[in-house]
Structures are given as C-alpha cells and as structure tokens.
Amino acid sequence: MIREFTSPDVVYLMLAARWTIGLALVATVGGGLLGLLIALARILPIPPLNWLAIGYINLIQGTPLLGQLFVFFFGLPLLGFSVGAWTAVALSLSLYASAFFGEIWRGALQSVPKRQWEAGAALGMTYRHRFTHVVLPQAVRIAVAPTVGFLVQLVKNTSLTALIGFVELTRASQIITAATFAPLQVYLTAAAIYFVICFTLSQLSRVLERRLHGTG
C-alpha cells in the first residue's frame, strides 16, 4: 500500500504549482482592479465614500481568509445561490487582496508629500491632472515593494483553497504524503517550489524598482 516518493511525484507537485500560480494571478488581477477603487474611495475628498471604504477594509482584513472562502463556497448555496468552486475562489481571493492592495496603495498615495499637490495646484493643474501626472508616478514607485511583499503572502495563502477542493501545491503535497508516508521529502520539494515562485517575484520587484527609479 505505501509506495516510494519518486520523480513522477515531483512532476505532479510541479503541475499542482500551476494552480498555486493561477489562483494567485486571479487574486492579483481581481484584487488589483478592486483595490484601485478601494484606494480611490479612501483618498477622494468625499467623506461617506471614505467611511464605506474604511468599513470594507476593516471587515475584510479583520476576518480570516479561510472564513471568507467558507462563506462564499458553503454559505451562499445555503441562501439559494449556486456557486462554483472557481467563482467562490475568485470572489473571496479578490476581495481579500483588494482590501490589502487598497490600503497599500492608499498609503503610497498619501506618502507623496502634500507639497507636491500644492505645487501642482500652483501651476494651475486640475485635481485629476495633479493626481495622474504628479502624485501617481511617485506613488507607484513607493508602492512596488509592499505590493510585491503582499503578493508573496498571497501565493502562500492560496493553499487555503484546498479546503474547497482545489488541489494546489500544499494539498498535492498532503496527498502525496498520504500515499508515500514520506513527508520530509515531499514537503521539502514543495518548499523548494514555493521558494522558486516567491524568489522570482521578489527579484522581479527589485528589477521593477530599479527601473522606476532610473526613469523617475
């Protein structure tokens, strides 16, 4: 019954890592778009919008991702909505990422000194122009490192989707471990794959930062 941990298992783990990357991508795109709106809602000078955004961020950041996944996958069907695993995952990962992206980008935007806004105003630029041409380029540069830092977290957090049936890297490791009873080899392999993904991300971030500084 118990079999050896062999090279086809390593391939299986690598294939499972496609899910890890795919899920992180979905969360990045969905969360990024939504996060942009959240960041805007946080800084536009419209108080009710600010409160709404703050409430949303507190709600999402204050509840565990696991709970959000559960609510979307198992909770909505109880209310009569039929939700597929992909929909549930895309929704909950995007909402989760959007709250964090929103806060990261809000911080980056607000860390651009107020003088820059004032200087733009002194030149007769409109709010929109000051935002897109003066503040945003500087904020993007500031935001790169924390954004990638969160992405690395996100990659690792995709392992929670195993609970609603996704066989991504962590879940695949559990499955192989159960068949081989060789957790050390299996999890070391999985750790190496995670490292490759996350290290690539942080290297990309470094390149991006350097490039943005160069042209800045």
Binding site: M1, I2, R3, P8, D9, Y12, Q174, I175, I176, T177, A178, A179
Partner: peptide, 14 residues
Amino acid sequence: PVDVPPFGFVGKSN
C-alpha cells in the same frame, strides 16, 4: 478521500 490510506489515496499515476 485521497489522504486516508488504504481507504482513499493516490496510486502510481496519482
């Protein structure tokens, strides 16, 4: 299950 041998686990080709 796929993690409870011998009731449910993955074979040679997973």
